[in-house]
Amino acid sequence: MSVEIDARGLACPKPVILTKKEIDKGTKDIVTIVDNEIAKENVTKLISKMSFDFDVEVCEGDFFIHFTTGSEMGLEEQGALKPEIEDLVIYVASERMGVGNDELGDALMKGYFYTLTERTPYPKAILFVNGGVKMTVATSPVLDHLRALEEKGVEILSCGTCLDYYNMKDQLAVGGVTNMYTILDTMNGAKKLAKV
């Protein structure tokens, strides 16, 4: 027997909250009924986020969202569907974000790395060269963010030549040291490359 949640006529985020409550109760088969596209999107987003399969049936302008919780998908399959890491390499070539004002550039850099920790999929690697290596040493203002990313499986690599030039070789506080061969291979081998 499936449980029906009639969320027609309810304002956002009510349909999502009701659906979530039913999932949390441990109900197996659920049908959420909504009467508009946005509510349908929001509810199916929640279901996808929880890695459950769903079907949407449209009937006289109403959307019937059928889904089963605790689906049989293995962990590996779930991982394949929602990769935590994408084939993206981020290349950090300076200690600030953008050119114009240093104080602002520092603040933007902190905001950038914080946001990276919040967004999935994560990049597969972040390369730090020249002034960028100041982000991976003990005095870095974004050390906590980089450590959080490393924990998620993001490879953090600093240019050894650059650390040496700035006399910071013994101050590296996150990730590993790399050389131009690896930097080149990592950049050229990536599907996507973003420069900061």
């Binding site: 902190k110 905001g111 914080y114």
Partner: peptide, 9 residues
């Protein structure tokens, strides 16, 4: 003031 807080968007 050595307080812990972070700049975020």
């Amino acid at each position: 003031a050595e307080l812990k807080g972070v700049i975020i968007p």
